[in-house]
Design a protein around this nucleic acid. Structure first.
Lengths: 156, 156
DNA sequence: TATTGTTATACTCTATAACTATA
DNA sequence: TATAGTTATAGAGTATAACAATA
């Protein structure tokens, strides 16, 4: 009982905002996204493009369905699909069952670009986590996944 | 040696982009930033505002110095300081030693807003990490800090 | 001649509103 | 009447270029 006071609150939360988890996660997210866009730039794509390409590759989806899953507006999806067509990575195909819809169908070049993009992203992630060993990377992945899962966030 | 093949590569990295650390961190960062902006909105501030306010509170800095530390352009800082003055949170004071410079000086209201903003951010972080226990939160903070540190990123 | 703050301007990203063709 | 895709437009947010005051 040397302390002159026993009413001091038990250690404040981190005083500087820069030390808080929120700011670190926000900055880290920006860095991760920017780095992803950088390594995809040689393919003429962004991280958002690649995510859409992956969704369209997994199953036949209309632009509307793609935009809903990505949490972007229909009008934004128009521009993304325009980019795919311009790059020869996907085609718009009228849905015979509902002629209002276009199904976004990947070309062979599109599937190759998806593979190449996934590789580039994997390398970028490996580089981003250079400061962590394998166990720590798994820990970070698991914790981040769990937190994100608790927010009910759309992934695209 | 039951396996029919011993040349299979040792487990691919996660196939779906949405499972990769990069995308999870990018999404989590967006959520954290958006949530921070939300809880600061009643104060008329954003997370970026609050970070600048904190820097200016810690030591007397010119707009140029603030913009350099935040990694934004001088012209962007003009608008931020305009906001502070409009809200009565800070004042521009000519630096007598170099009359080209304005020192951004917090008012009493500015210091109160900084405190209130810090509290709001602390509550938002606590809410964001609701899915983790204390030990896991500390782990996530430490790992994220370490990764961000490895990138040499500016914090603002 | 260089630097600080400012303004005007442009660029990127995204969303809203209005149009068309289909349902 | 409602929906899918499109276009035109507008709103954030941020940067570049040019300018006045000061060094």
């Amino acid at each position: 009982m040397h302390a002159p006071s026993d009413t001091v609150p038990p250690a404040d939360p981190p005083r500087a905002l820069g030390d808080g988890v929120g700011f670190v996660l926000a900055e880290l997210g920006k860095v991760a996204l920017a780095r992803g866009d950088q390594v995809l730039a040689p393919l003429g794509l962004t991280a958002k493009h690649l995510r859409v390409l992956e969704l369209a590759a997994a199953e036949p989806l209309s632009q509307q369905q793609l935009s809903l899953r990505c949490g972007v507006d229909r009008t934004t999806m128009v521009a993304l699909v325009d980019d795919f067509e311009r790059l020869g990575l996907a085609e718009r195909r009228r849905d015979p069952a509902d002629r209002r819809r276009y199904v976004v169908a990947l070309t062979d070049a599109g599937r190759q670009a998806l593979d190449a993009g996934r590789d580039a992203i994997a390398r970028a992630e490996d580089e981003l986590l250079a400061a962590l060993d394998d166990a720590e990377r798994a820990q970070l992945r698991e914790l981040a996944h769990r937190v994100l899962g608790g927010t009910g966030t759309i992934v695209c």
